[in-house]
């Protein structure tokens, strides 16, 4: 998987139609300048040499230098990564804090055929919120909380006040999807026979939910929750541009606009690695939560 990602990011510059050097410099540049940039891009060498150079650079943690300001790409990514990570994790917190309680409550009520109005509200509310793209949510949040109520800043940044609105913007739609997922899983767990066993113990409702329902719902929602987490990464990229957060998302958009190919390559590679790591960690967490997966290891 990682090898494929490396290969693809390497190929991006090679696939650019026309001459990448010409794209960078514009039509006014002279042939000498173009030749020099071609040299810097390493486009004069054979494709195998280029690839070898790229790989050996990667091994040293060297992602090349930006065409725009000559800064090392690795350093630029290092600065931007922490903000992106903070936003993605805050958004995940939003998803979990909204999704689990609301979804389990809705599932519980639906299973018992009570409070139909509430269930309908959750169903329609989550359908509507789930269809909200993060850039619209973000714009709306800025309007309400930053410009009208003036309680939170327009500009996103590190810390609670800087992250509150961006995290909500990224997390709201996935939270709605996750709520529905949790609700459906709760309904299906509640009709399992082991819940009948637990019911026969006449446990207090809270204990029944926390002890008997939640672990099973969590296990079964995690697989899709993992996909959701990767989606959060995509939402982060867009939302950073709404709140002007200098993370990887704004970084890649600027890099694309300025034809800064090494920066594009570097950021795409890092985002891809993050996505792979998330998928992997979801698998590992699943293993920890579900004893059936765990016991397959030799003890």
């Amino acid at each position: 998987m990682l090898a494929a990602v490396v290969l693809l990011t390497f190929m991006i510059v090679r696939w650019v139609p026309g001459d990448p050097a010409r794209n960078i410099l514009g039509l006014t540049a002279g042939p000498a300048q173009v030749a020099q940039v071609r040299q810097e891009l390493g486009l004069t060498n054979s494709i195998w040499q280029q690839f070898g150079h790229y790989i050996s650079g990667l091994a040293r943690g060297d992602l090349g230098r930006s065409f725009v300001n000559q800064q090392p790409i690795a350093q630029m990514i290092g600065q931007r990564l922490s903000l992106t990570a903070e936003l993605a994790i805050s958004a995940l917190v939003v998803v979990l804090v909204i999704g689990f309680p609301l979804g389990i409550l809705a599932g519980w009520l639906q299973h018992h055929g009570r409070a139909r109005g509430f269930g309908f509200g959750v169903a329609t509310g989550s359908s509507l919120a789930g269809a909200l793209p993060e850039y619209i949510t973000g714009t709306l949040l800025i309007f309400v909380f930053a410009l009208t109520l003036r309680v939170l800043p327009v500009q996103g940044g590190p810390g609670f006040t800087g992250m509150a609105l961006p995290a909500l913007a990224v997390g709201l739609a996935p939270a709605a999807v996750f709520t529905r997922l949790v609700r459906n899983e709760t309904v299906s767990v509640l009709s399992q026979e082991y819940i009948a066993t637990a019911m026969s113990k006449r446990l207090p409702g809270i204990r029944l939910i926390l002890r008997h329902v939640l672990p099973n719902v969590a296990t079964s929602t995690l697989t899709l929750g993992g996909l959701l987490l990767v989606a959060l990464l995509g939402g982060t990229v867009i939302t950073e541009n709404v709140f002007n957060i200098s993370g990887l998302g704004t970084g890649i958009v600027q890099a694309i606009v300025h034809d800064d190919y090494p920066a594009v390559q570097g950021i795409l590679l890092v985002l891809a690695v993050i996505a792979v790591v998330i998928n992997l960690s979801v698998d590992i967490t699943l293993g920890l939560l579900d004893p059936r997966v765990l016991s397959k290891r030799p003890s």
Binding site: I12, V16, P17, G234, I252, V257, Y261, A272, A275
Partner: peptide, 21 residues
């Protein structure tokens, strides 16, 4: 399966990077 697990917006960004917007 590998491709599906990757956010579409990032794939789209990579493609836009190749062809100018």
């Amino acid at each position: 399966d590998l491709l599906v697990s990757y956010p579409p917006i990032i794939i789209a960004l990579a493609i836009t990077a190749i062809f100018s917007p």
